[in-house]
Nucleic acid binder design. Sequence first.
DNA 1: CCTTTTATACTCAACGTGAGTATAAATCTT
DNA 2: AAGATTTATACTCACGTTGAGTATAAAAGG
Lengths: 293, 293
Amino acid sequence: MEGGAVQAELIAVLAAVTDGEPRVLTIGSGYALPSGPLEEGHRSLQTGLRAWVERQTHHPLGYVEQLYTFAGQLPGAARGISISYLGLSREAMTEYPGAEWHGWYEYFPWEDARHSRSAPYVAAILPRLRAWAGDDAARQTRVEGLFGAEGWNEELVLQRYELLWEAALVPEARRPHTDEGGTVPGREMTHDHRRILATAIARLRAKIKYRPVVFELLPREFTMLELQQTMEALAGQTLHKPNFRRLIEQQELVEETGKTTSGLAGRPAKLFRFRQAVLEERGVSGTKLPRVK
Amino acid sequence: MEGGAVQAELIAVLAAVTDGEPRVLTIGSGYALPSGPLEEGHRSLQTGLRAWVERQTHHPLGYVEQLYTFAGQLPGAARGISISYLGLSREAMTEYPGAEWHGWYEYFPWEDARHSRSAPYVAAILPRLRAWAGDDAARQTRVEGLFGAEGWNEELVLQRYELLWEAALVPEARRPHTDEGGTVPGREMTHDHRRILATAIARLRAKIKYRPVVFELLPREFTMLELQQTMEALAGQTLHKPNFRRLIEQQELVEETGKTTSGLAGRPAKLFRFRQAVLEERGVSGTKLPRVK
DNA sequence: CCTTTTATACTCAACGTGAGTATAAATCTT
DNA sequence: AAGATTTATACTCACGTTGAGTATAAAAGG
């Protein structure tokens, strides 16, 4: 056979939102993402991925989309290809030993800008990045653009992580694995898994704005506040309540169920469900080009 | 070694726009995309891709982004993984034997909606799709949503191709390779290559709206009309001239060079170039969420 | 009964977008 | 050379979307 055959590793980022916290399913005490090699029996890449996730976590896999493929070091020192996926789940519960859900801001504390929760982390990171940048104008532009005061862009999760890697401020960037000079707060992961998680968060933050995927994370019936808080958890940003409501309504994404909540403090909230039509109707797409005729 | 090792095929869609036509670089008389297996010597996937494209077409590879990875049938009957890429090029010229540029609407004639050029193709396709859909409501919804009269969405290139495949209206869907019942106009390609091209077109049509990638396709200096016609060629749509101009100006993507065209009919046009700052700066991202504070 | 809490409705200015019109400055035609 | 043609560029106006803030409704809690 010509050309070198390689191992193909399948890696899953399975996300859920519970109690207003976005979580990710991990193995190895939060140190790794569910993953395993593509095997002969797998009829497709997604089939293989599902098999591995269910074997390692006993958690079913619903909505799935591909993230990225890259060549890298695989477990076992072999060179191979890693193919990563993002999955969305409604519940973050598991009894299976070894499988744990972790809040994803444990891994990226600087990414949770709700009520300036990330402010202290950013404040601690910035001087270290500036020191690293020194007189290099290109580095300065990147540092200020990604972590600087004006205009935090919540979609640039991966770029921020990669900048911290380049500046050797995350443990994964240290070879050999020393803590000399110190690193930045945030849970570490094996291999490239934290980078893959960053890619997943970035993708999800971008996607919720133009495709109705939040639905995959919510129960069938929910209140406006639950919907908003789920979005806020993902985006790491607080949203303007009346305008959020208006946005959802004018897009006709949801419909009333007729039921309301009860037993909680405050006025009862109407329960909504997503309109089935939306899930079928493809398209959407906000064109940004001034078409004619 | 545990787990089955597989072949990894790298496939490139290299696009350029010349004379108002978007073109794609092919081998095998327009029947295939440049491609080849990942080899031991390749330091990364992109390195491997570049090697193959240059070997097969002698064309250099500039801007490149990953498209999609899937498991499929590789040339030589082996099972393996295909990793596809989109590349952008400024010129569509090559002297190398076997390498040819082809207008991408040769492969998807129904996708060129400039001045209703695709209208006759759509008119021919629709009744055949409707016949295929029959009484199936789900099929009808898809047919009308993708090819129907109201609201042609130019980003759904892949979905339209896949629908034609399902309806067995493209030759690639016929096994064995017969023309019974007839197919729809449009150049055929080997394996999944036409599907990959569809993915590339869809990606590019989506991306030009929120990232300054057209620049990779234009010479360093260009007129507003050249910029507009390049966008129109990609989108397969005609655009409103004054509004297009306003859009470009208000986004501050370009700056005047001071020079103008000459020798051509009509009033001389100012020459523009892309602002260097844009290429660096840009986190861009138009948030669609009503953030607060 | 009044306070607190949460839900929901409404207002208004600023801005972006769709559509169309008007004017400027070249070349082309006869 | 004059007028027609072509292309470039500037301007207008209505309308819908968005950002920001305010007002009212309906429950639970003390």
